[in-house]
Design a protein around this nucleic acid. Structure first.
Lengths: 367, 367
DNA sequence: GTTAGCACTCTCCACCATAGAGTGCTAACA
DNA sequence: TGTTAGCACTCTATGGTGGAGAGTGCTAAC
C-alpha cells in the first residue's frame, strides 16, 4: 500500500485536502456519514472510489476523519473541522445578498431602541440557522455620567446611575431616617458635581473623606439638617462605589440568545439525552461569559470546536464568536452556537459581518 | 354489572373519590400507569382488586381516567386532574418547614437588589421541582416620577424615565442639531416640573401645546436659543408619551424562568419530539404573557391543565399561576410550569406562599 | 499509482416468540 | 345486591433471528 507508506504526520497533499473538504462539506449538509462512492458521484474528483477509499483511510489515520462503525461512511473529527477552519474554509466574506438582508433588518430599529444586541442574536440565528448569541457593549472601566436619587418610600431610596457609555444601573438604599425628594435632589446634585466622570477606583478614594464629614457632622458641630445631609452623601457614595465595582467586575452583564430551537432540531440531537445536554450547554452562561471575556479584547473571530470546549455539556457543539466595540472603551461579543457539524465558513462570514455592523453602531453612538 | 348501572354523570361516591385520588397521587410520584393490584397493595382500600377494577372502569367511563392500552394500568385524564384540583387536593397550605426554607432564601437578598422576581422563579423551581416563572411587578398606569436627558453624542440623547413605582425605561432620541448637557438639563428640569405625576394619557393631552410652542418659536418670534429649546421639549415630550404608552400597553415586561431542565427531565418527555415541544412551550412567552394579563387582577391562584391551554405546544404541560401586588397600582405574577403529572397540591401551596411573600415585599417597598 | 472485484462487517429492519402485566368478565359467595 | 376469586384475553416489552444494503479493506491486475 503505497498510500499507507506516506508519513501520516506530514502536510496533506492537495488531493487529500480536496477530499477532506468534500467530506466535510457533504457531511455538513447531509448529516449522514459520507462514503467513497457518494464522493465520486457528487464531486469531480477524477479518481475511482477505491482510490478515494485509500485516501479516506489515510485521513482517518491522520485523525481528521472517523468511522461510526466498519460499514459506515466517514465523518469529520473535531480535529478535521479545525483543519478545515484553519486551511480549507472558503472566503469568509458574506455574499452581498445576505449582507443586504442583514443591513435591512438592522435598519429597521437603528437608534430606535437600546436593544441591538438582541437584534444581533436574532439576526445571527435566522441567517446561520444556529443559535445566535450576543452581549451588550460593556464599558471597560465605567465612569459616572449622572446620578439620580428617587424616594420610593419614606426610608427606601433608589439610586439610579447612568454611566458614560449609556448603561443604567439601579440599586436600593435603606436609610435610618425618612427623606423627601428635595433632600435627595440636593444630595444627588452635590454628588453629580463632585463625581461626574469618576471611575469606581476614584470614587473609592474619596469614600474616607465622605465618611469623615459624616462623622464630624454627627458630633453636633453642625445643625441636624447638615448632619443628615452628610450622612446621606456618605451612604450614597458608598453604595455607588460598590455598584460600579460590581459592574466593572462582571465580565459579561447578560448573554442574549435566540434560535435555540434551531440547534435542538439538528438530527445529531435526536436522542433526548443529547438534546438535554445541548440545552444545558445553551444555558451554561458562566462558560459563555468566560469565553466572551477571553476574546473580548482580541479583535478577531474565534472558533471553539466540540471538545475544544472545557465543559462536558459543550463537547458536542461549536461556537463562533467575535468581539465588537472599542477596546479600552466598551466591548461586547456576538456569535453563534451550533452542532460541531456547522457550516463554519458561512458562520464565520456572518459573525464577522454582524460584528462589523455592531462596531459601526457603537462608533456612531459613543463617538 | 351493578357498578356499570350507576349513572356515570352523577356525583362520585366517597369510595370512588378515594380511589381516583389514590390513582392520581400514585401516578404523580411513579409516572407509571397504576393498576388495581398496586392500589390495594399500597393504599388501605378495604376491598379486593376486582372491586377496584370495577370502580376504575367507572371512573374511566366518567372520563376521569384513561388507558394507554388494554393491559396497562390507569392514568388520569386532564379532566381527572381538574376534578382532583377542584375537590380532592389536600390543604393547599405549605408545610412550615418549607415556608421557613423559602423565607430564608428570600431573607438573603431582601432590599439588596431589585431582582426578587428572579429569586421567586428560582425558589419556585427548586421547591416544586418544576420550572419557576415570575414577572416583575408592573404598574397598572405608569406615572412619571422623574425624567433625565443624557447626551450620548452630539445629536443623540438618551431619555431616562423613572416611573413612580421605580421602574426605569430608556429611549434614544436623535436631534436635528447638537446639544450640550446644560441645554438638556434645562429642558429636563422644565419637563420634570410640568409632567411629574402624569400618566401617558395626560402627557399625550399636552403634546399639541408643546408642538404649537415649537412651531411658534420657529417662526422667528423668539431667539434661536429659545426656539431650539421649544423644539427639544416638544420632541422629548413626544418620545416620552410614546415610551409610556408602550410600557402601559405591554401586558408583561418579561417573564423570568428558572429550572426548565427540571421539566425536561420528566420521563413523559423522554422522546425527543415531545422534549422539543415542551421546550418551545417554555419559550412561548406570548401565551404566558396573555395568561398573566388574564389573571393579574384576579387575586387568586389559577391552574391551567394540559389541553385547557390553547396552544398545541402547551397541551402536555400544566401551569399554576398566582398574581401578586396591589391591584390598580402594580401587579406581577409568579407560578410554575410542569408536566400535567404535577403535584398540584404542593405546587398550589408553594405558589400561594411565594405570591404572599411577594405581596409583603411590594407593600413594604411601594407603601 | 490506480482500479475492478470481492469478501467481510456492521447496521437496520421486519418478523417472531415469549414473558408479564393488567384488564374485563363470569360464576360463586356473603 | 355488592364483593370476590378465577380465568381467558389483550397488549407491551424484550430478545433473538435472518436477510438486505451500505461501505469498507484488501488483493490482484492494469
Amino acid at each position: 500500500m503505497a498510500r499507507r507508506s506516506r508519513p501520516t504526520a506530514g502536510p496533506l497533499d492537495a488531493r487529500s485536502q480536496a477530499i477532506l473538504r468534500a467530506v466535510i462539506e457533504e457531511y455538513v449538509v447531509s448529516a449522514v456519514p459520507v462514503g467513497s462512492q457518494a464522493l465520486v458521484d457528487r464531486y469531480r474528483l477524477g479518481v475511482s472510489s477505491a482510490t478515494v477509499r485509500a485516501i479516506l483511510a489515510d485521513l482517518e489515520a491522520a485523525g481528521l476523519l472517523t468511522h461510526p462503525h466498519t460499514s459506515a461512511g466517514r465523518i469529520p473529527t473535531d480535529t478535521g473541522y479545525r483543519f478545515y477552519v484553519e486551511s480549507l474554509a472558503d472566503t469568509t466574506v458574506l455574499p452581498a445578498v445576505e449582507q443586504l438582508m442583514i443591513r435591512h433588518q438592522f435598519g429597521q430599529v437603528q437608534f430606535a431602541s437600546e436593544h441591538w444586541f438582541r437584534l444581533a442574536a436574532t439576526t445571527l440565528a435566522s441567517v446561520t440557522g444556529s443559535a445566535g448569541l450576543a452581549t451588550a457593549a460593556k464599558p471597560t472601566a465605567a465612569r459616572v455620567r449622572r446620578i439620580d436619587l428617587v424616594a420610593l418610600q419614606d426610608r427606601v431610596v433608589s439610586l439610579i446611575l447612568v454611566m458614560r457609555e449609556g448603561t443604567i444601573k439601579q440599586a436600593m438604599i435603606t436609610l435610618d431616617r425618612a427623606v423627601d425628594q428635595d433632600d435627595l435632589a440636593h444630595g444627588a446634585e452635590r454628588l453629580n458635581m463632585e463625581l461626574t466622570g469618576s471611575t469606581a477606583a476614584q470614587i473609592e478614594a474619596r469614600l474616607p473623606a465622605y465618611a469623615a464629614a459624616a462623622n464630624a457632622a454627627s458630633d453636633g458641630s453642625l445643625g441636624p439638617l447638615e448632619a443628615f445631609d452628610a450622612a446621606l452623601t456618605s451612604r450614597v457614595a458608598d453604595r455607588l462605589a460598590r455598584t460600579m465595582r460590581e459592574f466593572d467586575a462582571a465580565a459579561v452583564e447578560e448573554v442574549y440568545s435566540d434560535g435555540l430551537l434551531n440547534v435542538m432540531e439538528a438530527p445529531e440531537f435526536a436522542q433526548s439525552e443529547k438534546l438535554r445536554r445541548v440545552f444545558s450547554a445553551l444555558e451554561n452562561r458562566s462558560y459563555l461569559g468566560q469565553l466572551l471575556e477571553l476574546i473580548a479584547g482580541s479583535g478577531r473571530i474565534h472558533v471553539f470546536i466540540g471538545h475544544e470546549n472545557a465543559p462536558a455539556d459543550m463537547r458536542e457543539v461549536s461556537l463562533v464568536l467575535a468581539p465588537y466595540g472599542r477596546p479600552g472603551r466598551a466591548v461586547g461579543v456576538v456569535g453563534v452556537l451550533g452542532p460541531t457539524r456547522m457550516a463554519y465558513s458561512h458562520a464565520i462570514g456572518t459573525v464577522g459581518f454582524v460584528s462589523g455592523l455592531m462596531n459601526e453602531l457603537v462608533d456612531h453612538l459613543y463617538a
